[in-house]
């Protein structure tokens, strides 16, 4: 994968499949690092699952025998001098369950890849799961870009966030926020 935003899409899909109703994505940038985190209130993972997570030959899927999402992310982060940390509470342990994945990248490292089209990633996520409350914040030294699906849903009522007109508005709104900061 050649864009950080594709890694974010891939990691967030794990949260979607975990049955989450709330998913928070944050991105922060300073002079040296890019950090993203994805937090959800999904089913979480057991300690056994968490231990095996970095093993590419472990997956809970039935369709194939490898799980490369986390290993890919870890490889990219470590290649740039960064790291990945994952914490999770399984639903059998507490009613306050869910998973947080955090990845730090060295922004100036030669192996760092561009962020790419994060707006497309967000539109893809909302298109696939319009019922999930995604929140997104991208923090820069001079401001931030943000999206809150629950706020939009309050305005839209019964209309799905996956309607093309709405997705377009979301995309254009985000791009305008980015233009203001840059």
């Amino acid at each position: 994968m050649n864009e950080l935003s594709l890694y974010i899409l891939d990691i967030t899909m794990n949260s979607v499949r975990a049955g989450s109703s709330e998913i928070r994505i944050t991105l922060t940038e300073d002079d040296e690092h890019v950090t993203f985190s994805v937090s959800d209130n999904g089913c979480g993972m057991t300690k056994e699952q968490l231990e095996k997570l970095e093993n590419p030959f472990f997956t809970t899927r039935k369709t194939r025998k490898v799980g490369l999402g986390i290993p890919f992310l870890k490889m990219l982060a470590e290649m740039t001098g960064g790291n990945v940390s994952i914490s999770s509470v399984h639903e059998s342990e507490s009613c306050d369950h869910g998973t947080t994945t955090k990845a730090v990248f060295g922004k100036n490292h030669i192996d760092f890849i561009p962020l790419g089209d994060i707006v497309e990633t967000l539109k893809t996520l909302i298109q696939g799961s319009p019922e999930i409350n995604f929140t997104f914040t991208h923090t820069f030294p001079n401001g931030e870009v943000s999206l809150d699906c629950s706020q939009l849903r309050e305005i839209l009522g019964d209309i799905s966030l996956a309607e093309p007109e709405i997705l377009n508005w979301i995309g254009e709104n985000l791009r305008e926020q980015y233009d203001e900061i840059r």
Partner: peptide, 12 residues
């Protein structure tokens, strides 16, 4: 839209 799809270019 799993890892395999995303890596191969499913988003566009």
């Amino acid at each position: 839209m799993a890892t395999c799809g995303i890596a191969a270019g499913a988003r566009p």
